[in-house]
Design a binder for these strands. Structure first.
Lengths: 137, 137
DNA sequence: CCATAAATTAATAACGATTATTATTTTTGA
DNA sequence: TCAAAAATAATAATCGTTATTAATTTATGG
């Protein structure tokens, strides 16, 4: 998954906390949200530290960053194979069970000449709450 | 594809030019690149105008914005169904013929309760050029 | 256990992409 | 042709993220 050889990081209280926060939510939080959560336990933590540690955790493969949409970065502590869906109205992101179909990387490799490492499948739609809200307008 | 009723836009030389530029390239350019191209024909055009018109064209469904990665916005004048692959080394984005498999929206709708409008499938890998460069290190 | 070197931190400045503002110009249609 | 509405260029402002730096924390080897 990583293209560069693994670096070894010195552990820190801050990084442990960030990982714990990410693992304890089913949501897909932004750096800002994680920062707010982290301050509750470590009031002196700074936002830059959150960003830096998220990048490190990602590099280690202990978390993932969503590739949904082009907006702000969202992170995911769940490493199990799954897809995502984003609500076009409120922006909420939720997990989708992985599609049953197998993606033929070799077929794509044949078509475009790239070596394929992974893929990302995302759905866009309207969540139940926003659907209801739209109906009651 | 759009959730709000269609707005009617007043036409403009600038918007026509931007659409023409997007349709005449197979690449997936950024607003900044389109801006540079546009100045060649309309030296007084401003970057804000490019951004605004890209948003309008997108709203009209005449262009698409890629959902690949979280970085800068990339646009696509090709409305035909296709997927994308991004090079993890150089960032280049290329078209991939659409996967043969049919995605079961109703299955996803059943699983998460959303109404699904569309999906996006992206591959990540290493392009031939970067693969060769890595081999010669 | 202590000393040293190296990595990490908090604070904050800087950055880059995008959006908002506003006075002026262009387009539309009666 | 004329007035109203929308689009433009120029530029300021915003926002998410990254870079800088002096101080602190962590790893380790004696």
């Amino acid at each position: 998954m990583s293209l560069t050889p693994a670096r070894k990081f010195k552990s820190s209280r801050q990084r442990d906390l960030i990982l714990q926060i990410l693992r304890s939510t089913k949501s897909h939080p932004s750096a800002a949200w994680i920062f707010e959560e982290a301050r509750k336990h470590l009031p002196s933590i700074s936002l830059g530290t959150v960003y830096r540690n998220l990048a490190m955790l990602k590099e280690e493969g202990r978390i993932r960053e969503l590739s949904v949409g082009k907006g702000i970065g969202l992170f995911d502590g769940d490493l199990r194979n799954h897809d995502h869906i984003r609500c076009l109205v409120c922006g909420r992101v939720e997990d989708v069970p992985p599609s049953a179909q197998s993606f033929s990387y070799s077929q794509v490799e044949g078509a475009v000449g790239y070596r394929v490492h992974w893929h990302s499948l995302e759905y866009f739609g309207v969540c139940p709450g926003c659907e209801t809200a739209a109906a009651n307008e």
